[in-house]
């Protein structure tokens, strides 16, 4: 075991896969000489050369399309969005071609492609650099969407994403790159489609992902102290949702709280609620509650920004409310 930062874990995943498979390459802005905006590709260009770690002009839609062209002709490109927000400029290539081309071509082509980079609300980066795109991308058919949250899962998930024969949009969170954790030195992979049980419990299922997982764990000691016993699931896969693991948990707790960073309208939580209704309605002792960020552009001011995304104390209040109100109904 060795203690690594999340950006280093992601770098190691990329390095290992590039070493193993010559068709794996990195394409994006400042991924080469500069080493990536968060140093995920630091020094890889000196090990693998400029062609395998390709610095591109600032032309998101075109270099994303280029990666798609390389993927359908035999390479396994990793596109880094310097900031995932910039990939709004590549929305057409991500949707029409990364997501849909395999289906539209009747299976003629496969697209082993990873689109990764820093997403989420950072620290006072302003609206355009603090986006919550997972919800925007979730409607695109043909994409897998993954959000890592720890150095350990970041490494194992990225390796799996690179080996996957489908396009994977891989969200890292801008505020988690400096998380440190001991991870195994031996190679390991983590499946892309399985939620991670962060904590076992029996009172309520908290469904969360990415940075909000850490707000949930921050709330845990106070909840435990007050006698609440929540089960915490990190979704990992935002598309498709791991409804099997969610079912196992909900059948045990019968209560659900969703804690997400994306906006409330048409967010990941909205889809979760719909699927829980479809599959697990009879299991519920209380309506599913979601704590989402506000439906506004992320404001610059620090206090306003904090008020835009969910904070740990809101999670504590919500858990207590749901558990207490549904206890009176069932007893």
């Amino acid at each position: 075991m060795s203690k690594v930062f999340m950006f280093d874990a992601l770098r190691a995943a990329t390095d290992e896969e590039m070493e193993k498979d010559l068709t794996v390459c990195v394409i994006g802005e400042d991924v080469g000489h500069y080493g990536g905006s968060y140093k995920v590709t630091k020094d890889l260009h000196s090990k693998y050369g400029d062609l395998r770690v390709l610095d591109t002009p600032i032309a998101e839609n075109s270099f994303t399309g280029m990666a798609i062209g390389a993927a359908i002709t035999g390479l396994r490109p990793i596109v880094e969005g310097m900031n995932m927000s910039f990939l709004l400029l590549a929305f057409n290539q991500i949707s029409n071609n990364a997501g849909m081309l395999r289906y539209t071509s009747g299976g003629n082509f496969t697209l082993p492609l990873v689109i990764r980079g820093p997403g989420g609300v950072g620290r006072q980066l302003g609206a355009e650099h603090s986006q919550r795109l997972e919800a925007y991308f979730q409607a695109i058919p043909g994409l897998k969407i993954v959000a890592c949250s720890t150095p350990y899962n970041a490494k194992g998930l990225l390796k799996s994403a690179i080996r996957d024969n489908n396009p994977v949009v891989f969200f890292e969170h801008v505020l988690l790159y400096n998380l440190q954790e001991e991870i195994p030195e031996d190679e390991y992979l983590i499946p892309l489609d399985k939620a991670e049980v962060v904590r076992k419990g029996k009172d309520i299922t908290i469904l969360t992902y990415s940075r909000m997982r850490h707000h949930v764990t921050e709330a845990l000691p106070l909840l435990l102290n007050d006698g609440y016993d929540p089960e915490v699931l990190d979704l990992i896969s935002l598309k498709p949702l791991d409804i099997d693991s969610i079912s196992v948990s909900v059948k045990k707790t019968h209560r659900v709280l969703i804690v997400e960073e994306c906006m409330k309208t048409a967010g990941i939580g909205a889809e979760l609620i719909a699927q829980i209704n479809e599959h697990l309605f009879d299991e519920l002792d209380a309506p599913v509650v979601r704590l989402s960020s506000q439906d506004i552009p992320t404001p610059y001011n620090g206090s306003l920004e904090q008020a835009t995304v969910i904070q740990p104390h809101q999670i504590i209040d919500a858990v207590k409310n749901i558990v207490n109100s549904s206890k009176t109904i069932t007893t």
Partner: peptide, 9 residues
Amino acid sequence: PVATGAAFQ
């Protein structure tokens, strides 16, 4: 861009 990617390949 897709054609450009094939040429890159």
